[in-house]
């Protein structure tokens, strides 16, 4: 009943661990898949070379969500491949490897090397708001550059490629079209929004060491729903809809906007790592009540006139 498909990759249920959450190690990904019930798991974004990330504090909560500026810390592709391999071997669900580069040309190299670990999908993170790249802003802000990155990645792998987009743009549909035309097999949307800032008034300083950070959690859900709705109108390729999804109702909502699967991130904090199974049973309950028997039936239904 909850089965879904992402560019030919089959998922037992539509909950997907979002990148940057619990994905530092292979063992952690396996646990989310085998014990917490995720339908697919996304590893933390990896770059060619090691990155220490920003100094702490890197992640804080506020009234309506979370702010983070971890700074894409990762041990570099060579050290990270064993983690992906471990997850692919033991998770029992599709493993999504997330890659990023600071230069357009790096994406090709890293896509080629990560393919050796045989992930189910390669997600291309061109939307992180917390680090500077060669143009001083995320690649996903420009349809042309997003397309160039997509083509380079596609040229270097046979594994399905999903491009992760940011909602911090005037027309996300246009960017989605560009990556589809460049060969993308799917889209993940959205990355964190903002960036935002929190100042502690007793300390009289911004809390995050990076001062600003990407916003996630329940507060950004309406932005994610709108972005997925706009992308669905513009392209045919599948969408992993992510951004503030915390309950079964939220997951159904983003599927009705046009997503084939729902990315889960900050909700791991609000509801614990068992959130994936919880969301699945809540979805099932809703579908029984409303007479839906598949994810496909609900996908994009909000677009019907």
């Amino acid at each position: 009943m909850l089965e879904t498909e992402l560019a030919g990759v089959k998922l037992q249920n539509p909950t997907v661990l979002a990148s940057g959450i619990l994905g530092v190690t292979g063992a952690s990904l396996v646990r989310v898949a085998t014990q917490n019930g995720a339908g697919a798991v996304t590893a933390k974004s990896v770059s060619l070379k090691e990155r220490k990330g920003h100094p702490t504090p890197v992640l804080i909560t506020y009234e309506h969500g979370m702010l983070n500026a971890v700074g894409l810390s990762n041990p570099g592709i060579d050290e990270f491949i064993p983690e992906i391999e471990y997850a692919v071997k033991n998770a029992g669900v599709p493993v999504i490897a997330s890659i990023f580069g600071s230069k357009v040309t790096e994406f090709g190299e890293i896509a080629k090397r990560i393919s050796a670990a045989n992930p189910g999908i390669i997600e291309v993170n061109i939307a992180c708001p917390n680090v500077d790249d060669e143009f001083g802003r995320p690649f996903s802000y420009d349809p042309g550059i997003a397309g160039v990155v997509t083509r380079i990645v596609k040229k270097n792998t046979k594994i399905p490629v999903f491009i992760k987009l940011s909602a911090n743009v005037t027309n996300i549909g246009e960017i989605a079209k560009s990556v589809q035309e460049s060969g993308a097999d799917g889209i993940t949307a959205i990355n964190t929004v903002g960036p935002g800032m929190a100042i502690n008034i007793e300390a009289r300083k911004p809390i995050l060491s990076n001062k600003s950070g990407g916003m996630s959690g329940p507060g950004i859900k309406p932005i994610a729903i709108k972005a997925v709705y706009d992308i669905y109108k513009s392209v045919k390729i599948p969408i992993i809809g992510t951004g503030g999804i915390s309950t079964g109702r939220d997951a159904i909502e983003i599927i009705m906007a046009g997503a084939s699967a729902a990315g889960i991130g900050s909700a791991v904090y609000y509801r614990g790592p068992g959130v994936f199974s919880k969301i699945c049973s809540e979805m099932q309950e809703f579908m029984d009540k409303e007479g839906f028997s598949s994810i496909k039936e609900m996908r994009g239904i909000a677009h019907e006139k």
Partner: peptide, 19 residues
């Protein structure tokens, strides 16, 4: 540890995968 709240995954241990 980075986040302290079981989200970032930095303190996950092998092979249990617990934070």
């Amino acid at each position: 540890m980075k986040c302290g709240i079981g989200v970032c995954g930095q303190c996950a241990v092998d092979d249990l995968g617990i934070c």
